[in-house]
């Protein structure tokens, strides 16, 4: 079975939360504040089904979803 991994580019992420709210599997959560940008960054906490909605809807080109199979 496919196994997907969500990478967050912490330099670009502005902590808007869109990815977290849009993910149909609730696979993302905020994880503390990035001291370099002052924004909260999400991290992957659950299983990703590879729908790529977070990647499309992240306004800051900060998400890449990779098929790790």
């Amino acid at each position: 079975m496919a196994h997907y991994k969500v990478f967050i580019n912490k330099k670009l992420c502005k902590g808007c939360g869109i990815c977290i709210e849009i993910c149909p599997r609730n696979a993302l959560r905020f994880n503390g504040i990035n001291p370099e940008t002052g924004y909260r960054n999400p991290e992957q906490v659950g299983e990703c089904i590879g729908c790529r909605q977070c990647m499309w809807y992240c306004p800051d080109q900060a998400i890449v979803v990779v098929d790790e199979q």
């Binding site: 502005k14 869109i18 800051d60």
Partner: peptide, 23 residues
């Protein structure tokens, strides 16, 4: 397709302009 050196964009966090850019 972006000038990486000027990122992140100047838009507010969550600004939908960035989604259009993806499309």
């Amino acid at each position: 397709y972006l000038r990486k050196e000027v990122l992140p964009t100047a838009f507010c966090p969550g600004c939908y302009n960035g989604i259009l850019m993806n499309a």
